[in-house]
Structure formats: structure tokens, C-alpha cells
Design a protein around this nucleic acid. Structure first.
Lengths: 350, 350
DNA sequence: CGTTTGACGTCAAGCGTTTGACGTTAAGCG
DNA sequence: CGCTTAACGTCAAACGCTTGACGTCAAACG
């Protein structure tokens, strides 16, 4: 291995140039041992390193631009200073806030990296062992399905986000989507709707199941008949197509409102309704979930159940940090509330 | 270190439970040496491991669920099997395709992880050394600014995406946004517009500069007067506010078209124009860049310069893989073409 | 039959960091 | 003055994996 400069043979070679700066080099430069360097750099100098030596080391570190090598460090310590956020669909604008809040809550001792699966497909449980072999300090797992959670080895440091109904021992930060969904059902019933279509996701995530069930159950209690169907849409395009196919049947069935399990689903309905000349909310009321930033600017603007993205990221980040540094999170099962934002697509001109 | 179960002292402890499976354990189980295990697992068995032993090892690996530990491996090999994609604004739907294509092109020997900065702010160059200390096999860097590129140590394996006008030695995959921007300018001039407002981003990315300059230069050549101004918007909300403030002035100046440096900017203009009772495209034509999935469903649908996200990810992934495995990418400077998608927001009812 | 060749295995030296254990020294105490 | 304490430094043993170097052995060759 070492210095294999032969071009043939193993395809993988060390990066050329720029020798890595090691603790040993810093130690030599500062005239101390590597142990001392390590103590200073990791902030454990108290009572073991004199002020004079500390300064020498700090100068040498600055001069040489030394950065602790994660490979060596994590081998020795058992973990690396990164937190992996596993998510399915980062393009959901919901995530920008979540990520930024989580990073802030985690503090700057950890690097936050994202592992995202292809849009529409759930995270492959097979990738978990590979990620674990990176020895991250912890995982933040968004909207995991049961299979994924089951495949988590005991002892993994992880916090689940948005994992309702999973009944797991892992610390979890949940959103009370059910509350928002119920509120939406009450809202539609209150407007006089009698039959409503609920467009579910084909992606099997617990959060989608919960949204649907909460909505449909509450609807049923109120005498509002809610039929649902999965539709293969994450992008608006598909929604439009799907809508074109089902609209005649809906019309025949007397359906006067449609709810998408996501605002993007609802966007598709809006666009397709417009294309089909169906007036919203006159002929068809439309609503969604997530209150994406675009929703208020749709035409008509979209009624939606807003989820507290920032709080979610913040709570999850804080919990994981507690696990990593302390052992237990202060609060093991957190639930954040959602709320319904009323807009034109259900109530008409505001 | 080893087994520190004292609760006090260092806050960080090893994860409890589930002893890590090491190559040594596999070796014992299979009755061979760790060297043999390593050879089998890394696929270098040819000519060094008999079929019988290989099978024994494979069985033991399966039985014990052994996964190579990245910490040890990357310490020894000099790099870990991960590729870091550095990006600024993953919630741009553009990225979903880019990521998925890049992952596919990279192959399954590498794990693709994302490092994202907060929306609106460029990637902090200070985070580069930390990422490098993870020893990833390579970097994919999207829309880097000059400062970031300058801070890349020589020898870093990286491919730049969407880094126009940077004049760097790093292999780069660029989009010919300029071509699309020019096409847009010609389109607007052809429609008879004489004065146009260009809303720039406050984020300093080369791609934004190129979009603006190509548009304004072409416009000037055609006798189309293009004024531009940065506006502090990444989210549609801000755009709407900004628009409300400037519209009277625009009207006075005879501006009949507005171009957003991003479709999200254009969304904001659309929404604000609607709110202000300004007819699009009658009174004001609107266009943007990126052709986000929502754009075709806006009301009116949005004319936009489409960028080939999938091809971009694919080309970048392939180039990085070539660098990692071979040494040089087949093609050092790739340019992909963009094209203008015409829709209602400039040409009216289709 | 002596020698080359190639297949197959293992040894052991690193890779870079962390941290108990263990010195040395000087200050503090009775 | 003898003894405890604390501060400060360093040593060296891990952590888990990779791979040149170096064996052994049997088949192939002249």
C-alpha cells in the first residue's frame, strides 16, 4: 500500500500532494509529545498541560493548520464527529428549516451530513449497516418506516423524527399531524361538504398513514364520507394526470373536496382542476399538508396543515445531543402540535 | 478510553451493547487469518484465496453480519468510501434529480452524503477542513464561490458542478446557462419588450452572475434595456414584499417584463403581481430559471430556462468516479446545454 | 531430477489518535 | 522534616483494517 505509485494494479491510490499534517508533526514543532497535543486539541488540557505548553501547541497547530484526523480519532474513540440525518425527500422545502434548526441544536462539535434516498422510494434498510460502519456519533432519522427502525441495531444512537405510531424504544420527536388532520376534517365538514376524496401517497411512511387515518376517522365521526386512494405522485406532474383520470368518477359520486397528503399533491390537483375548468373552491375545495412556502402563493392559495419544521429539527437535534453527550435525552417522547392554515382553496376569496 | 463506564468525566462514552463485529472475529469463525478475510471482503481474493476458504469466509461474514469498519479501513487506505456533495440549497427541486443521478453514476461502492449550508448563505469555507478530515473518497461541489474553491487544498479529489467563470484547475461540469439566458433575452425582445427588470439573488454564486450577465448583455445587443437589482429573496415571501415596493417605480419606468434569477423568484413576482392586480403577461411578462416542477402549474404557467439536472449529476458523478479510480476524468471540462421552455407567463394563453 | 513458476496463506508493520498508567517534581500539611 | 497531593509530561497500548514481504507447496518445465 504505502506509496504505491505504480499506475497499474489497484485502481485506488492515495491523493497526490499535500502530505497530511499529523499530531506527531505538531508535537515536534511544539517540542512536546503527541499526547500533549491531543490533550490540548481536544480541550482536555486542564490539569495536564501547563499554560506555556498549551500555547506552544496552539501556535504549532495554527502554523501547520493541523486538523484532527477523523479516521484515527474515531478508531480510537469509537465514533466520529458526524451526525447523519436520514431523509427521504429533501426537496420538500420543509427540510431546509428542519436541517438548519437541527444543525444549530447539535452545536458545532458535530458535522451534520444527509443521507437521502431517491425521491419516492423509502430509505433502503440495507444502507444502514454501511452508514453505521462510518461510526457516526448519532443518527437523526426522519419519517422512518417500521422495517427501517427494526433494522437498527441495538445500541445505535438515534433519534426518530416524525415517526408516529411506531411504538419503538428509540427517542422520538413527533408531530401531532393527527390533530391538524382532524381539524381539517372538521373544517371541511363545517363548510357543508359531504363527500371528500383523500389522495394518499404510495410511499409507505407512517406519517402518511397517520394523516389519512386521522382525517378519515374524524370525517366519519362527523358524517363526512371520505374515500381515499393511493396515487403514485410525489411530483405535481403525476398528480395532474391522476386527477384527469378520476375526476369524472368523482363528479358522479358527488365529491366536492379533495385533500392531498402533501401540499405537492394538492398543487397537482389545483393545476389539473384548472386545466379541466373545475372551479376551486366553488366546485371542488382543495387542501393539503405541510404548508410549503409556495402554498400561500398558489392560485387560489392553498389551505394546509402546517407542521412546525424548525421546532422539529431543534427538538431532535437537542435530544440526540443529549444522548451522545449525556446518555439520556431529557424528554424521551416529544410531540409538537400542528395547526390548520385557512386559505382560498377551501374558503374562497379572503 | 476502553470501557469507561464511569458516568463522570468525559461526557462521551461508547455506545452500549452490541459488540462490534471485527475482521478478527470473522477470521476465527472461518478458521483463517484476518488478512484472508480482508482479501475476500474487498474482492481482492483472486490468486490469493482458494475457493474453499473464500466460501468459509463468506459464510462467516453472513453469519456474523460483518461489515468492514470504515474507521480502520480509511486509516489504512487513506480514504473512506464516501463522497460528499456540498450544496447550498437542497430544497431546490433541481437537486432531487441531480442527487439521484450522481449516486447512480458513482456506483454502489461509495456512499453519497450531503453537506448543506443554511439556505441563502454560501458554504462556509471553514467547514472544508473538517470535511476533509473525514477523508472522503471525493467531493462533489455544487455552485461553489471563488473563496470556497480557493480554500480547497491541492490534492483534494473534487469535481465542481455548476461553477461557471471560475477558471480553476478542478474538473468542472458546467451548464450553459448563458445560452439559455441569451435565448430568453431574444425571446423577450422578439415579443416587443423594450425595458425589463432582472431580479438577481443576494447570494453570491457564479451561476447567478453568469445568468445575469448573459441575459443583460444579450438584451443590450438587441436594444432591450435591462436593469437589475439584487433582492433578498430565496423564498417566495420575500419576493412578494420586494415586488410590492418596486412596482410603482417599474410602472413609471415603462418596464413590461421581469425575470427572476430563479423560478422561485419568479413565483414571488407572479404572486405579488396577482395580489397587485397586475395582469400577466398582459401588463407584465414574467420568466425565470431552472424550470422547477411547479413552474408548469403556476397560474399562469411560467416561462423558464430549463437546466439539465439529471445529466449534470450523472456527468459529475462519473467524472469523480474516474478521478477516484483512474486518476483523470475522461473529460475535464464538460458543458451541458440548457434550453428555454415557453409558457403562458410570457406568451399568454397557449 | 533440479529448477522455475504460480497459487495460496500468513505475518506484521503501519495508518493517526486517544488515554489509562506511571513517572517526576514541587507545593502543602502536620 | 517526612508524607500526602496535585500538576504536569510522556509512554505505549489499543482501535480495526490493509497489503508488501515472505513463506510453503505442488505442478510444470527443461
Amino acid at each position: 500500500m504505502r506509496h504505491m505509485d505504480t499506475a497499474d494494479g489497484s485502481p485506488l491510490t492515495r491523493p497526490a500532494g499535500s502530505r497530511r499534517v499529523t499530531a506527531a508533526m505538531v508535537a515536534r514543532e511544539a517540542g512536546v509529545s503527541t499526547a500533549t497535543v491531543s490533550l490540548v486539541v481536544s480541550g482536555k488540557a486542564r490539569g495536564r498541560v501547563s499554560a506555556a505548553n498549551r500555547e506552544k501547541v496552539e501556535n504549532a497547530v495554527a502554523r501547520l493548520r493541523y486538523v484532527v484526523d477523523t479516521a484515527g480519532s474515531s478508531l480510537s474513540k469509537g465514533f466520529s464527529p458526524v451526525v447523519v440525518l436520514i431523509a427521504t425527500d429533501v426537496t420538500n422545502p420543509f427540510y431546509a428549516e428542519l436541517i438548519s434548526a437541527a444543525r444549530a441544536a447539535l452545536g458545532d462539535r458535530y458535522e451534520l451530513l444527509l443521507s437521502v434516498s431517491d425521491p419516492g422510494s423509502p430509505t433502503n434498510p440495507a444502507s444502514i449497516p454501511r452508514l453505521i460502519s462510518q461510526r457516526p456519533a448519532g443518527f437523526l432519522i426522519d419519517a422512518p418506516n417500521a422495517e427501517l427502525v427494526a433494522s437498527l441495531p441495538a445500541g445505535t444512537r438515534a433519534v426518530l423524527l416524525d415517526a408516529p405510531g411506531l411504538n419503538t424504544a428509540w427517542p422520538t420527536v413527533n408531530l401531532d399531524v393527527a390533530g391538524g388532520a382532524a381539524e381539517l376534517a372538521r373544517h371541511l365538514a363545517g363548510l357543508g361538504h359531504r363527500r371528500v376524496a383523500y389522495l394518499d401517497s404510495v410511499v409507505e411512511a407512517e406519517t402518511f398513514r397517520v394523516r389519512r387515518e386521522a382525517f378519515c376517522d374524524t370525517a366519519a365521526d362527523l358524517g363526512l364520507e371520505a374515500g381515499y386512494q393511493a396515487s403514485s405522485l410525489t411530483a405535481v406532474d403525476d398528480a395532474a394526470n391522476a386527477f384527469a383520470k378520476v375526476w369524472p368518477a368523482w363528479q358522479a359520486a358527488g365529491i366536492s373536496a379533495a385533500v392531498g397528503c402533501t401540499d405537492t399533491h394538492a398543487y397537482g390537483i389545483l393545476a389539473a382542476a384548472r386545466a379541466a375548468g373545475v372551479s376551486v373552491p366553488g366546485v371542488l375545495a382543495v387542501a393539503g399538508f405541510d404548508d410549503l412556502p409556495y402554498s400561500r402563493h398558489m392560485s387560489p392559495s392553498l389551505t394546509s396543515v402546517r407542521l412546525p419544521a424548525r421546532e422539529l429539527g431543534e427538538a431532535a437535534g437537542r435530544a440526540l445531543r443529549a444522548i451522545i453527550e449525556g446518555g439520556n435525552p431529557a424528554d424521551d417522547q416529544v410531540i409538537l402540535t400542528s395547526r390548520l392554515i385557512l386559505r382560498e382553496s377551501t374558503v374562497g376569496a379572503l
